[in-house]
Each structure stands twice: as C-alpha cells, then as structure tokens.
Amino acid sequence: MDGRRLRSARTKQRIVEAYIALLRENPRIPTAAQVAEKAGYSVRSVFERFPDLHSLRLAATDHAFAQGVAQSAALDFEGDRETRIRNHVRGRSAICEHWLPLWRAVIVNQRDSAPLQSRVMLMRQAILKRIELSYVAELSTLDAVDRRATLIAIDALIDFESWSRMRSFSGLSVEEAQEVWIAAIDRLLPPTPIS
C-alpha cells in the first residue's frame, strides 16, 4: 500500500475508534464534529472517509464484530465442563464489558437500516454458534426441541443487557458477574455424557 493510502486507512481507523470511544463516554450518538475533534481531524476528513454518519456507524459495528470474533476464536473449546464454561463466560463477559456502548447504539438504530439489521443478525448467530461449540457434548444429549430451548436460554442469559444489569444495577464486579453466569449455565446444561 502506498503512503497516501496507508495514511487514509489510519485516519479512517482513528475516526472509527473515536466514534466508539465517544459512545463509551456518553450513550448518545456522537455528531460528526465530536468524532472529528476526538480523532484529531476535521469534519471534512470524517466525511471524506464516510459519506454519512450511518456509514461510520456501520464501520464501527464491523470493527467491533471483527474484534469480538477474534476474541472468541482465541478461546479454547476443549477441556472438562467447568473449564469450557469458564472459558466461554470469560470471553463473553470481556466482549460485553468492552462493546456494550456500541451494541446499544446499534440496537437503537437498527430499525432504520437493513445493513445494520443484518449485522445484528450475524452477531447473534455468531453468539449462538459459540454456545453450540462450547457445549457440544452436553447439547448432543438433548432432542431438537430441548436443545433449541437450552440454546435460547443460554443466549438470553449471556446477553449484553444481562451483563449491564449485573454490573450497573446490581453493582457486581466483573468476577462476581462471571460467577453468576457460570453457575446459571451449569444449571441450564444437561449432565455431561461420560466418554
């Protein structure tokens, strides 16, 4: 990549990161001027890289999704039941802790955008896939109806808003909130089959 394109890509990345940082500071959707100031660029630079704020929101969502997938991919699906539950919860809680502000902005605005809705659907499917991979042994013992119900229950349990309620409303530390999820998932799963 030549120097000019590299600088432009870096500028674009900094703008995306500024947008996300602003959402972490305040749940209101930031303006182009706020993003530009936070990134250290002009408003013109923002609109040279993104035709509108919706495009910037999509880019931030794509960035978050890629980061979340990378975080999840690094976790181990192997081990005994307790290890798998702990690894899953540790990974999911890190994603919730880090990406909750952006997730809220995406959810609030998804009705106005088919591309945003499709990204939300992809994220939800990735979460379900992670659940299935983490608990393949236990889920394999269930019939289709019970398997689906268990997946839905675990998915609802480890939702962003569940994490937010435990952390903000209930005042739990990260470790305390993780222990709540670990105990609940352990109760939801059927017994692990003996190999």
Score class of each variant (00 low, 15 high):
Leu128Cys: 11
Asp80Ser: 08
Ala184Glu: 05
Ser134Phe: 14
Tyr41Glu: 02
Asp155Lys: 15
Ile15Ala: 04
Ala18Tyr: 03
Ala105Arg: 15
Gln34Leu: 08
Leu151Tyr: 10
Met1Tyr: 15
Ala153Asn: 03
Thr83Gly: 04
Arg119Leu: 02
Arg148His: 07
Arg5Tyr: 14
Val106Trp: 02
Phe160Cys: 02
Ile154Gln: 02
Val174Lys: 12
Gln71Ile: 15
Cys96Pro: 03
Arg28Phe: 04
Glu179Gln: 07
Leu6Glu: 12
Pro190Tyr: 04
Lys12Asp: 02
Ala74Ser: 10
Lys12Ala: 08
Arg14Lys: 07
Glu25Gln: 09
Ala21His: 10
Ala183Cys: 10
Ile85Tyr: 02
Phe47Leu: 01
Arg7Ser: 09
Thr31Cys: 06
Cys96His: 12
Trp163Ser: 07
Asn109Val: 01
Ala70Met: 07
Leu58Gln: 08
Val35Leu: 14
Asn109Asp: 09
Arg104Asn: 14
Glu138Pro: 07
Phe160Arg: 05
Gly40Val: 00
Ile15Glu: 06
Val120Phe: 08
Ala183Met: 14
Asp159Leu: 08
Leu22His: 04
Arg147Ile: 01
Met166Ile: 01
Arg119Pro: 03
Ala32Gln: 02
Ala59Ser: 05
Ser168Thr: 03
Gln13Asn: 10
Ala66Gly: 11
Asp76Glu: 15
Arg167Glu: 03
Arg167Gly: 00
Asp159Arg: 08
Ser8Thr: 13
Arg86Gln: 09
Ala137Ile: 07
Asp62Phe: 03
Glu17Lys: 03
Thr31Met: 10
Gln67Ser: 08
Arg44Cys: 06
Val43Gly: 01
Pro51Glu: 10
Leu188Arg: 09
Arg14Phe: 02
Glu175Asn: 07
Gln117Gly: 15
Ser162Lys: 09
Arg57Lys: 14
Thr11Gln: 05
Arg84Lys: 12
Ala183Asp: 10
Pro51Arg: 06
Leu139Ala: 01
Lys12Trp: 11
Ala149Thr: 06
Pro101Arg: 03
Ile127Phe: 12
Ser134His: 15
His63Ser: 06
Thr192Glu: 10
Ala70Lys: 11
Trp99Asp: 05
Gly68Ile: 01
